[in-house]
């Protein structure tokens, strides 16, 4: 067991976990932050995307012990009194059906909007589709997800 200290959603947290514990397990089982979902066993689906030190990362493909001292933001940390513009846009544009992939879609969406804005690049709908390469939705198709991210990008 190894003691891990992190800052998750602005709060200092710690836990004693086996070294092979994935960040996704640490978030869900140790911290009980179950908004981060596990959708596949192969690191492909992106339902588990969180932000580590400001970057989108698949929490199922990262060891918790390797992130001692890191800043982690999960879907639970996005809303600040009211919904984050990305969450509101998914609601307004019906960007989900069953909702299982949505936490990862939203965390990836926030990351891509921030990155494109920082680089001064235009986040077109084609760019959104390319950026969503690592986020899989098995319900709706991606049309309303792309619309949601476009809508949020205009408000962020």
């Amino acid at each position: 067991m190894t003691k891990v200290n992190m800052n998750v959603n602005g709060k200092a947290v710690s836990g004693d976990v086996p070294d092979e514990t994935l960040l996704s397990q640490f978030l869900r089982e140790t911290l009980r932050l179950t908004g981060t979902h596990i959708g596949c066993d192969t690191s492909q689906c992106g339902a588990c995307v969180v932000h580590v030190n400001g970057q989108a990362v698949k929490s199922c493909s990262t060891l918790a012990v390797s992130l001692d001292g890191a800043d982690v933001m999960t879907i639970e940390g996005l809303a600040n009194g009211e919904l984050h513009p990305m969450q509101a846009a998914f609601n307004d544009n019906h960007g989900l059906q069953c909702g299982f992939c949505t936490p990862g879609m939203i965390m990836s969406g926030v990351d891509m909007v921030a990155r494109y804005k920082a680089e001064g690049k235009d986040l077109t709908s084609d760019a959104i589709r390319a950026e969503l390469e690592g986020n899989i939705c098995r319900c709706t198709g991606y049309h309303n997800i792309v619309k949601s991210i476009e809508d949020a990008a205009a408000k962020m």
Partner: peptide
């Protein structure tokens, strides 16, 4: 390579 989250790691 891969996707944006993979490229970050």
């Amino acid at each position: 390579i891969g996707d944006p989250a993979v490229r970050n790691m």
